[in-house]
Amino acid sequence: MEDINNSLSTEDSILVKKSKWLVMHLKKEWQLYLMLAPTIIWFIVFLYKPMYGLQIAFKDYSVFKGITSSPWVGLEHFYTLFDNDQFIRAIQNTVMISGASLIFGFPVPIILALMFNEIINPKFKRTAQTIVYLPHFISAVIIAGIVITAFAPSTGVINLMLNAMGYDSVYFLTKPEWFRTIFVGTGIWQEAGFGSIVFLAAVAGVNPSLYESAVVDGASRFQMMYKITLPCILPTILIMLIIRIGNILEVGFEMIIMLYQPATYETADVISTFIYRQGLQAAQYDLAAAAGLFNAVIAFLLVITANTISKRVSKTSLW
């Protein structure tokens, strides 16, 4: 009996001690918690509360009953999704478009960074950089507007050129076979310049004495670029590549929404545009939420994997 009492009282005293500490701590540092509060509240209200709402992926969601009272339906929406050719197509398109962006788009900023590094005239370099970074800061709507204008059948510059070369006009944006090329090309045009910043920073970190000793050894500029700069920024390249692969489900869907049309859904419809149409346009919230959950879980796993790998890579490759 006494033992129990003793242990209880020590437990109590630990609790008392802890709460005493907390009171003291809050008295001293309350300002800090006041500063933190808006951030935490914001994250809870706008990011964590929707996670609670994700349960409609397993429910027959009715607007009138609300999230909590709608009846459970288990995995029904997922079965529906995987029976849906459009959803399967959207997954395929997502991977295809992302993959193409990766394969064709990933090397460009690296090459650009290497090329910037070889420019001697600082004014020329600064001007060129200023210009190539710019498209990153232009909205998807405008970029899409430019694409639509430039590819317009009778007045767009692309078709005018084709006509001048003796070809007929092509209705590019209605042709499924052209969609990926246009989308990926636009993406590269918009982001390659800005993407080079990371690699330029890596290039700037290369020890200059490496170049100096190479000059003494009589290496040419191209050899230095190929044999010194490139290997030195390889860790950065590797990490960026891993990150990109981890984000493979992320497609610039704002741009797709702007550029695609029913005629091109065949190649253009990706998971997020599918969710947008099913959920926000057709109000099939539960089904779309299921698609979103599927997407989010896969993306989460990919990102975590990529992160783990990149941490390992960056640790071992840090000199």
Binding site: P50, G53, I275, G279, A288, G292, A296
Partner: peptide
């Protein structure tokens, strides 16, 4: 600030949203 109690957990709570988010539909409904 190091003196913030549970700092690690607050930070994890913030960072987690970079890896996982509920997506378009729950956000909209919210």
């Amino acid at each position: 600030r190091p003196q913030l109690a549970g700092r690690k957990y607050w930070n994890m709570m913030i960072a987690f949203t970079m890896w996982f988010n509920a997506g378009m539909i729950p956000f909209f409904l919210n």
